[in-house]
């Protein structure tokens, strides 16, 4: 049972090696990271530094080759104990990890509510309850007035809010946001960050935001720099948005 001060995410010496022998490339060389519930941290670094690999490991879509990964105190991956500690990675992603991407990647033939309700429904929540939960999230994200609209009718900012709602729909304790503000202008980018911060507090969600976006980097209280597969933690400005 995790106590209140148990980190939502804890990585210890996480490593990832692609290939073998002379062709082997160490993308992650021992990443340490701790993110608490309700916290939004930035993950920044140059291209090829290992950001995407780290996100894929956290998202349980590729298997690390060393170290340990915990979600809310529970070991998800432990190299010393044989790798993945959960049997169903698909269910892990569905129930415990939310994803926000650079582009919203909403399902074009579903309306806004159905896009958000899809995730709870995949987890077995009844249609009515899933839609109710979706509407509550859309209200919280100020896009409830577009609940019945088709995805193509939304603006870029609205689509990204719907994508955030979808990431929160299963009440996942962890959200991984991959360049969520890249296609947005400054105002909208800051709005998205504000929403992420509000959602983190409201739903006690730990959010990792991978970004290159100079506009939003000053808003983080904590930042992980990643370079050559190694992370360095530093305090951010925590500028209010």
């Amino acid at each position: 049972m995790a106590s209140d001060d148990t980190p939502a995410i804890r990585l210890a010496g996480l490593r990832k090696r692609y290939g073998t022998g002379d062709a082997a490339v160490d993308a992650l060389k021992g990443v340490d990271m701790t993110v608490h519930a309700g916290e939004v941290v930035g993950l920044i670094g140059p291209s090829g530094s290992g950001k995407t690999t780290l996100l894929k490991c956290l998202g349980a879509v590729i298997e690390p080759t060393g170290g340990r990964m915990e979600l809310a105190g529970e070991a998800i991956y432990d190299a010393e104990r044989g790798g993945w500690q959960v049997g169903d990675l698909r269910a892990l992603r569905r129930d415990r990890i939310g994803f926000v991407f650079q582009a919203p990647y909403l399902i074009p033939f579903l309306d806004v509510t159905d896009n958000v309700a899809l995730l709870p429904m995949l987890a077995g929540v009844a249609n009515g309850a899933a839609r109710k939960r979706a509407l509550a999230l859309l209200t919280a994200l100020d896009v409830a007035h577009r609940a019945g609209a088709q995805v193509s009718q939304l603006s870029g900012g609205e689509q990204q809010r719907v994508a955030i709602a979808r990431a929160l729909a299963n009440r996942a304790p962890v959200i991984l946001a991959d360049e969520p503000t890249a296609p947005l202008d400054s105002e909208r980018a800051l709005t998205v960050v504000r929403i992420l911060n509000e959602m983190a507090v409201q739903y006690r969600t730990a959010i990792i935001v991978v970004t290159h976006d100079e506009k939003i980097i000053p808003t983080f209280r904590r930042i992980y720099h990643i370079r050559d597969g190694v992370t360095h933690e530093e305090a951010g400005e925590g500028r209010p948005v």
């Binding site: 879509v61 269910a91 992603r93 582009a103 909403l106 074009p108 995730l119 995949l122």
Partner: peptide, 13 residues
């Protein structure tokens, strides 16, 4: 492809 990858990522069977 990307949308389908997202669906798989978020746990669609």
């Amino acid at each position: 492809v990307r949308e389908i990858a997202v669906l798989k990522l978020i746990g669609a069977k």
